[in-house]
């Protein structure tokens, strides 16, 4: 299990290849990549702030939950902070399982929990406008839904 919190960019393909090389017992590998989106066409950058003393432990806790719930062989989470421009990669998760269903579900679960239980905050900065990205009520509903999914 690997969790990394970093400001620097990372190479997705290198990360996936390294992850795959470590999980010999897996028959399925699923990845998700989060990218800075520019809905208005005027976004200059996104500033991602986090709580350094808490972030790594929060990510590890979420990852351990996902591994246990879906019987994953392994999982990887990399999350960036700092200033990111549209099109840049914010974060990625990778899950490895014996079969695809658990790998997909594990990645989906990881993303739902990272969204509302990992201490990151995003601020969108444009020339004439600055706005904190708000959590949605559907984010919490997604977590509640997972509690009804039995352990794999």
């Amino acid at each position: 299990m690997v969790t990394r919190v970093q400001e620097a960019a990372f190479d997705f393909s290198v990360e996936v290849n390294n992850f795959q090389a470590k999980v010999k017992s897996a028959g399925a590998l699923v990845t998700f990549t989060g990218i800075v989106r520019d809905d208005s066409g005027g976004l200059d950058y996104m500033h991602i702030e986090h709580y350094p003393a808490m972030t790594e432990a929060a990510l590890q806790k979420i990852e351990t939950q996902a591994i246990n719930k879906f019987g994953l062989e392994d999982a990887l989470v990399i999350h960036r902070y700092g200033i990111l421009t549209p099109g840049e990669t914010i974060m990625m998760v990778a899950t490895a399982a014996r079969h695809r269903k658990d790998a997909f579900a594990g990645a989906d679960y990881l993303m739902d929990y990272l969204k509302s239980r990992a201490p990151f905050w995003k601020k969108e900065v444009s020339k004439d406008h600055t706005e904190w990205v708000q959590a949605k009520s559907t984010d919490e509903a997604a977590l509640a839904a997972w509690s009804r999914v039995p352990k794999a």
């Binding site: 989060g34 003393a53 808490m54 509302s116 990992a118 959590a135």
Partner: peptide, 25 residues
Amino acid sequence: QELGELTTHLKDSCEVAFFPPMTGG
């Protein structure tokens, strides 16, 4: 560094952090 609530008890020299709902991912 653990999520708490309004009813969570405080101890000497503990660290209390306040923030909006998180928006990771």
